[in-house]
Simulated assay, not measured.
Amino acid sequence: MLRICLILASFVYLNLTNVSAASATNIPASLLKQAATEIRVSLGNSANELIFEPNHLDFVSGKRYNLHLVNPSSQKHYFTAKDFADGIWTQKVEAGKVEIKGAIHDLELKPGAEAEWVFVPLKPGNYSLRCTIAGHTEAGMTGKIAID
């Protein structure tokens, strides 16, 4: 009975984290203990320009990253890249004293907020990034993400 419960718990966990059993077993435990490569992205800037800085991000499949997101502007912004998020394994998202695990598709950063998204890219491809607040995408708050 305990074995069945463990199998069911593993299945539920893998579905909640948006990773198949095969791809989860392909992530070596040693990779998760290695220091993540930090990439810093600003959502907007202090002049309230509707931009991502930088607006092009490159990642390598199978490598661990810490995407450090900051919002130095006086308005909230979203980091939305659903297809990208579906092609990675998220270890965690940290914001303040909160750590979130599981499937993440977008993050909202309020003025002055910071968040860290630790993940391992799994699916090579080119993905779109945008802020989904009305008018922000149209004003140019877009970007590209590539996984090699």
Results as ranks from 00 to 15, higher is better:
residue 58 D to A: 07
residue 144 K to C: 03
residue 106 D to A: 01
residue 40 R to D: 14
residue 21 A to Y: 14
residue 140 G to K: 08
residue 8 L to P: 01
residue 23 S to G: 01
residue 111 P to I: 09
residue 34 Q to W: 12
residue 52 F to V: 04
residue 30 S to H: 02
residue 125 G to R: 12
residue 74 S to G: 12
residue 97 K to I: 02
residue 20 S to D: 05
residue 89 W to T: 04
residue 112 G to V: 14
residue 127 Y to V: 01
residue 115 A to E: 05
residue 16 L to D: 04
residue 130 R to S: 15
residue 10 S to A: 07
residue 32 L to S: 04
residue 2 L to I: 14
residue 30 S to F: 03
residue 14 L to R: 13
residue 144 K to H: 08
residue 137 T to L: 01
residue 64 R to G: 07
residue 1 M to A: 09
residue 97 K to V: 07
residue 1 M to L: 06
residue 90 T to V: 12
residue 99 E to K: 13
residue 70 V to W: 08
residue 132 T to K: 02
residue 12 V to D: 03
residue 10 S to V: 12
residue 74 S to C: 13
residue 20 S to F: 10
residue 125 G to C: 06
residue 59 F to Q: 05
residue 90 T to K: 01
residue 63 K to R: 07
residue 4 I to S: 07
residue 50 L to K: 05
residue 37 T to W: 04
residue 144 K to T: 15
residue 76 K to D: 04
residue 5 C to V: 12
residue 21 A to F: 11
residue 142 T to D: 10
residue 24 A to I: 08
residue 9 A to C: 10
residue 59 F to N: 08
residue 50 L to S: 12
residue 91 Q to A: 06
residue 132 T to A: 06
residue 89 W to M: 03
residue 70 V to N: 14
residue 16 L to N: 11
residue 138 E to G: 00
residue 142 T to E: 14
residue 147 I to N: 01
residue 132 T to E: 00
residue 113 A to R: 02
residue 61 S to P: 06
residue 77 H to G: 00
residue 19 V to A: 05
residue 140 G to F: 00
residue 68 H to L: 06
residue 92 K to M: 13
residue 1 M to H: 11
residue 142 T to C: 12
residue 32 L to P: 00
residue 133 I to T: 02
residue 112 G to I: 10
residue 59 F to A: 11
residue 48 N to I: 11
residue 143 G to C: 02
residue 121 P to I: 11
residue 57 L to T: 00
residue 37 T to G: 04
residue 134 A to F: 09
residue 41 V to S: 08
residue 28 P to L: 07
residue 121 P to T: 02
residue 116 E to F: 13
residue 52 F to R: 10
residue 52 F to D: 08
residue 139 A to Q: 11
residue 112 G to C: 10
residue 7 I to K: 05
residue 44 G to Q: 06
residue 24 A to P: 03
residue 7 I to A: 15
residue 8 L to E: 09
residue 131 C to V: 12
residue 6 L to F: 05
residue 50 L to N: 05
residue 37 T to A: 09
residue 92 K to W: 13
residue 131 C to M: 01
residue 21 A to K: 15
residue 96 G to Y: 01
residue 136 H to K: 04
residue 122 L to C: 02
residue 84 F to W: 07
residue 24 A to F: 12
residue 60 V to N: 08
